[in-house]
Design a protein around this nucleic acid. Sequence first.
DNA 1: AGGTTAACGGCACTGCGTGCCATCTCACAA
DNA 2: TTGTGAGATGGCACGCAGTGCCGTTAACCT
Lengths: 221, 221
Amino acid sequence: MRRGRSAEGRAEVRRDLVTAAVDLFTDKGYDETTVDDIAAAAGVGRRTFFRYFAGKEDAVSPDHDLGLARIAAVFAEAHPTEPLSSVVLRAAETVFDLYLTDVQTARKRFALVHRVPALRDREAAMVHRYRRLFTRELSARLADVPDGDLRAAVTGAAVVAAHNQALRRWLADGATAEGARECVTHFRKVSGMLPLDAPLGLEDVTRRLERAARNLERLSS
Amino acid sequence: MRRGRSAEGRAEVRRDLVTAAVDLFTDKGYDETTVDDIAAAAGVGRRTFFRYFAGKEDAVSPDHDLGLARIAAVFAEAHPTEPLSSVVLRAAETVFDLYLTDVQTARKRFALVHRVPALRDREAAMVHRYRRLFTRELSARLADVPDGDLRAAVTGAAVVAAHNQALRRWLADGATAEGARECVTHFRKVSGMLPLDAPLGLEDVTRRLERAARNLERLSS
DNA sequence: AGGTTAACGGCACTGCGTGCCATCTCACAA
DNA sequence: TTGTGAGATGGCACGCAGTGCCGTTAACCT
């Protein structure tokens, strides 16, 4: 074979497969494109395709694992005294960069995902994972707040929904480079809609302060 | 054949297929169960299975179309002057009955859906449809409110998330009959977390009143 | 009784996803 | 330089999902 164990070779094959899949799906349709077509267009065997992607649907939007990792990193490295709404906003905004850079690719993927039912469902499953990650991290940090699990679920869903809505609006408005800043600004308006610190009693505040102090102590040890 | 065009016969076959699928999935596993097994256990041919369900995953939880129809009906029949938060709550609560009645079935489905990845993704796609329906209905009713689309997206996601969180909590707490009332009560707490009427200026209020008057006039004609 | 309609079952076909194995290339060591 | 092990590949074959097609059968209608 022409490639050994080179990591650059793997990334190159992966990119070729993604572009071939997106082009073929856009050109002749999703159902009319077989995995053999994608592999042949990328110059590899059919068996190799399934070594890079778990299924035909995964050839589009292969960056979701990176987005999930970034969110988890923001939560893991956040200072214990930083307000939750700030952490949540920062975590969600790290995902924007995955879309706002390759504008052409983002537009093609968006059109594909929202035309093909199989890709729509796949995207929904991915959004579900984002929501679950947010909810889990928030739930752990709202353990001693009344209805913490409910607030975590609502906040996670709200943040993910606002993120997708801002992205959708940006794409519908032409996906310009200067629109990217306004996209993030628009998304940040969600911070006023989150049920995080609004109706807390005095004892809740003291509990949260004590918890923050414990976290701070644990972190500095 | 033993069944003609009888509607009762169709519903009976459908129930047999669902119970056979759930039992087989629970017993020998999802991947280890073929559609042939389900059809044979229900006493019908393999081809007939695909006349009742679009795929193997749809044999579990076949009531989602009914839930979507109920939500759409609540929105369609709501009085134009009813507050949006009230309509949203009522719409979501109509879906609870789909789960709170058959407790045993709900428990089995829950365990299955959250164990099998394919069924999890299918459920996520269904939740996505619920969220889209809520968001669409809300977006049309928040057209003349600042950031109406964002509020609609956040509210739809929050309501669906709270619904699922309440249902999950109820199932985790044993899924008792008396717990059903508390499940709905718990869900209703989401009404205080929705960005619907909170920060509205005077001109927004007058706009909404004018819109309600227009809707009322259109409805009475 | 004869015709119509709708559901069913069987058959064959395409394509996805996977296990298995032989082959090739690169890296590293003797 | 040559051998060796590990990673990557491609081909082959298999099971199964989903679909189109068609003959058959049972219920309904006139």
